[in-house]
Amino acid sequence: MTINSPWDEGADVKDAILEAGKAFDIRHVGAFAYFSTALEIGWIPRPMHAIYTGDEMRAFREWLPSTANEVKWSLGGSLYRENIEDYYFNPYELGYGHLVKFDHDFIGREALEKIANQTHRKKVALMWEPSDVQDIVGSYMDTDQLPALYVNAPMSNYANWQYDAVEDADGKTIGAAVYTGFSWNARRMMSTAVIDAEHAVPGTKLTLVWGEPDGGAKSAPWIEPHRQVKVTVTVAETPIDKGNGAGRGVK
């Protein structure tokens, strides 16, 4: 929700909101915490733009200036695929299926009609096992081997498009975690992910691969040398405030 007001009335509006929100335990949490709200509501802010393949998009790609986000944004994470289309999502996978209506014409309608009744991957929350997070942090002080990739708080994405592999019990990649950070309300590290529907059952234990292949791209100096680690995660529904066990009482 966005609230707009004249600039000179901003302070009064803010004070009124804080006063009215006391009954709901509203409080200041800092600007950095703003970005963690996307985790809690299950919004994926940066899906890969599906423009890098197909002759229909060639003219658009050639038109883009070198300063455009579609040109300069970085792709990172533990999921590595040769085919760029493996990073694309459709509206159903992003949780927007209920907004797709076929009562009017629009670009892409035919393609969406073909897949509308198929089983789609599902957007979920993945709650990180606290002991695995502690092991990651502990690795920073281990001088005998490379540490795990640094976990930043509240947000741990280090690439504009970050795709971390999610594996099932057999080590098969069944989806990607695309937004990762710490939720103070849930008291957990967590990720928003898109995974195969058969594994999207709350309570299912999966594995998230944290860290770049081969210790990270040598051309990315903002990523320290590190080793990949595997994190146990538990599937939960998203948003996490549905009373689904993904809040403060998670064990």
Rank of each mutant, 00 (worst) to 15 (best):
G211H: 04
A23D: 14
E82G: 07
H104G: 04
Q228G: 00
D142E: 11
V209E: 00
G77Y: 00
D164G: 09
M1S: 09
V151H: 10
W43D: 07
G203I: 05
A23S: 12
H98N: 14
V229Y: 04
I84N: 15
D214W: 15
Y87M: 01
T2G: 12
L149C: 07
S139R: 05
L94T: 00
D103C: 02
V201E: 13
V178Y: 11
A165T: 07
R27P: 00
P45S: 07
R188Y: 05
I240C: 08
K22F: 08
G216Y: 04
A125N: 15
T204C: 07
S78Q: 03
H120W: 14
G97M: 04
N244W: 10
Q134V: 11
S66E: 15
T192V: 07
A148G: 10
R61L: 11
L94M: 12
A50Q: 03
S156E: 08
P239A: 03
D15Y: 00
D144I: 05
L146C: 02
G215R: 01
A38R: 15
R58H: 13
A11V: 02
V71H: 10
L94Q: 08
S131W: 08
M189R: 05
N90G: 06
N90S: 12
W184S: 14
G42M: 00
M190K: 01
I44Y: 02
W184F: 14
I41V: 14
Y92F: 13
D241H: 12
P213A: 14
I41A: 04
V209D: 00
D142A: 04
A200P: 01
W161T: 01
V124I: 10
W161K: 08
E56D: 14
F182V: 03
A59L: 07
E237A: 14
R46Q: 11
V29L: 04
T204N: 04
A159M: 04
N244P: 03
R61P: 06
S74D: 12
I115M: 07
D196A: 10
K14T: 11
D55H: 08
G243F: 03
F24Y: 07
Y34N: 14
A197C: 01
T192K: 13
G97D: 01
M141T: 00
F106N: 01
R248Q: 11
P213R: 06
R188A: 11
K172N: 14
W184H: 13
L112Y: 06
G21K: 08
G243E: 07
W7S: 15
M155K: 03
A236S: 07
